[in-house]
């Protein structure tokens, strides 16, 4: 399949900026939240943004963008429940196929674009997502991963990084935050074998919009895992969202890659490809951790070198694994 590298489309900032916004201001997402950036870019990346149906799992984005009687969505949009965005998408896709077969719908089939948070994707919605992917529906699922249940007040999710504090994994004198390593959701979806899977970061926006375009043009399920910075839940200033976002990839905590299901290839992309070729460009994880209050217990009152080095060891391990998968090791 055509991946990011062979894509015959170069996103030009001024052209994207001129495209109409289908996710408009007036919503109540927090200052510094990366989710609206992800949504706006994704909608501008579609080949035909007019012909789209959007599905949203329960979460910050859904709650803050559709407070009745207002809506920020200038395209058809549906929110069903928390755990079933992918199943809902499969119904929409099937509906347009059936209506097309009966000549009730005469245009091209619309792109079914799903936005789900990490709770609705990693945890409660995993079954629904796995089912829809396995059945091979054509839909683009964008996971905006802010690494906890932010909408309900920053509770632990299986996407929460190890040793991060959340309200249900507080850093206590005995337990230093969440004890488990983050679940590798991208690999899990890739393991289905039939889905285009990619990771993304709104800071590296060209890579992101290209991946959305690749996903939209792929004739099957597509899954994009975008890291989504949450100043409120990560406890940092809303001014440094994009700095934190950049560091997530520069430290290799959230490396950029894509999986081509037809050729069974993992390909490292953009900044991560640069780091793969120039390992000295990899930034120590501490640079990322120290900016965020959710990791503050690793630095004060006493510095926990044991934990920081444990995180670094695991990040290095996972990065090496990815390099092997991508045939770069």
């Amino acid at each position: 399949m055509v991946g990011v590298k062979d894509l015959k489309w170069t996103p030009i900032p001024i052209e994207l900026a001129k495209k109409p916004d289908y996710f408009i201001s007036g919503h109540r997402m927090c200052a510094g939240c990366a989710a609206p950036v992800i949504v706006k870019l994704a909608l501008k990346a579609l080949p035909n943004p007019e012909n789209v149906v959007i599905v949203n799992a329960t979460g910050c984005l859904e709650v803050a963008s559709t407070i009745y009687p207002y809506t920020s969505w200038k395209r058809p949009w549906i929110h069903n429940a928390f755990e079933n965005a992918a199943a809902t998408a499969s119904g929409i896709e099937a509906a347009f196929k059936a209506l097309k077969a009966k000549a009730v719908w005469k245009d091209d089939l619309p792109i079914v674009l799903v936005f789900g948070g990490d709770g609705g994707t990693y945890d409660i919605g995993l079954q629904s997502l796995s089912g829809a992917v396995e059945r091979g529906h054509k839909f683009v699922y964008i996971l905006y991963d802010n690494e906890a249940y932010m909408n309900t007040g920053i509770q632990r999710c299986s996407s929460t990084p190890q040793f991060a504090q959340t309200t249900t994994t507080p850093a206590g004198v005995v337990i230093p935050g969440k004890l488990e390593w983050k679940k590798p959701i991208g690999f899990i979806i890739a393991a289905h074998g039939n889905a285009y899977v990619a990771t993304a970061n709104p800071y590296f926006w060209i890579d992101f919009v290209k991946k959305v375009r690749v996903a939209a043009e792929y004739n099957g399920p597509a899954f994009i895992h975008a890291i989504s910075i949450c100043p409120r839940g990560w406890y940092h200033s809303s001014k440094i969202t994009m700095t934190v976002s950049r560091l997530a990839t520069e430290t290799c905590l959230h490396p950029l890659w894509e999986f081509d299901p037809e050729n069974k290839e993992y390909r490292i992309t953009d900044k991560s490809l640069e780091i793969a070729r120039n390992p000295e460009k990899k930034v120590p994880v501490e640079e990322y951790l120290k900016l965020q209050g959710r990791f503050s217990h690793l630095f004060t009152p006493t510095r926990r070198d044991d934990i920081i080095s444990e995180i670094q060891r695991k990040v290095d391990r996972d990065w090496e694994y990815l390099l092997k998968l991508a045939g770069m090791k």
Partner: peptide, 25 residues
């Protein structure tokens, strides 16, 4: 000419109904 979706649970069956019916099917 029905699109028949063999879903992975009843929860997804009714969830797919929501999407499909909202789409006008």
């Amino acid at each position: 000419r029905t699109q028949f979706i063999n879903v992975e649970s009843e929860h997804s069956a009714i969830s797919a109904m929501v999407g499909a019916a909202a789409a006008g099917a």
